[in-house]
């Protein structure tokens, strides 16, 4: 295994309060990401704690989504994308050639910007992950997993009578919660959310935010968001990205009341972005 530098708080001198309770789930050191010639992320290092919500904010094109997609190697699907540096999940280098990317993604789940349920039944949507990972020994066990996941995603009461109907027939907010249930069903430890509410109306957004708050008891959640209000509402830690670098990362309350960096302050107060 790789030798690890002792964890240190980056950028902010004091440890954020949320860190006191948990360990670091995801750590990155000197990560560079290139799309062909273009560098999207420069020398990024960060420690993300378990059982807390970390929000990535920053102007468009700042690299926050790119970095998020590095954590479960979704960037592998883009042929020109190259990642260097070190990203560990549970102290395992996820870019180690020996790592099975499939198992990594089972451990680090993802929810996408636009709800993308499979054009299959609600049940099949949730059951797909457990099936391919062999998590259920039989039909009853699979039923249990599906129910549990839908309950956790706060969708069970709404869909329990129509599990056989297509997932694409649900409303946008329900679809997104279905996608969250689908992610939860494979027992991930980290859940990455890439602007999960950007395609939803305010009521559905509130419902998802509530859900994120509940889920943080059990998961390490990283959320990319365009809305600073949302970051303030749901996250314990906030990271501000700008032009491919991590400008500041720390306790959300502190970040929004007393940011360390000028650029952060300018962004939060709306001077650019």
């Amino acid at each position: 295994m790789n030798a690890h530098v002792p964890h240190q708080t980056l950028v902010t001198p004091e440890k954020p309060r949320a860190l006191a309770s948990g360990q670091f789930k995801v750590t990155a050191r000197d990560v560079d990401v290139y799309y062909g010639e273009k560098q999207a992320i420069k020398k990024l290092s960060i420690d993300i704690p378990d059982r807390a919500v970390s929000a990535f904010i920053g102007p468009s094109g700042c690299g926050k989504s790119t970095f998020l997609r590095c954590i479960n190697r979704m960037n592998d699907t883009i042929p020109t994308c190259k990642v260097t540096g070190l990203i560990d999940v549970d102290k395992h280098d996820i870019y180690d050639p020996k790592i099975d990317v499939v198992q990594l993604r089972a451990k680090v789940g993802m929810v996408f910007q636009k709800p993308n349920p499979f054009p299959k039944s609600i049940f099949e949507n949730v059951a797909y992950g457990p099936r391919i990972h062999g998590l259920a020994a039989g039909k009853t066990e699979l039923d249990e997993i599906v129910e549990k996941s839908l309950r956790k995603a706060g969708l069970w009461e709404e869909v329990k009578d129509r599990l056989a109907q297509p997932g694409t027939g649900l409303s946008g907010g329900q679809q997104q919660r279905l996608c969250i249930a689908r992610a939860i069903a494979v027992n991930p430890e980290v859940i990455l959310m890439d602007e999960p509410c950007s395609a939803l109306d305010p009521i559905a957004t509130a419902r998802i935010e509530e859900l994120i708050d509940e889920l943080r008891q059990n998961y390490c959640i990283v959320i990319v968001t365009h809305s600073m209000q949302q970051a303030a509402r749901v996250s314990q830690l906030t990271a501000f990205f700008h032009l491919g670098t991590l400008v500041e990362y720390g306790d959300t309350d502190e970040m929004f009341t007393a940011p360390q960096e000028k650029r952060t302050q300018d962004y939060i107060t709306g001077r650019f972005g």
Partner: peptide, 8 residues
């Protein structure tokens, strides 16, 4: 992406 996201 959705399938990859759940570890397919």
């Amino acid at each position: 992406e959705a399938a990859l996201g759940v570890g397919a």
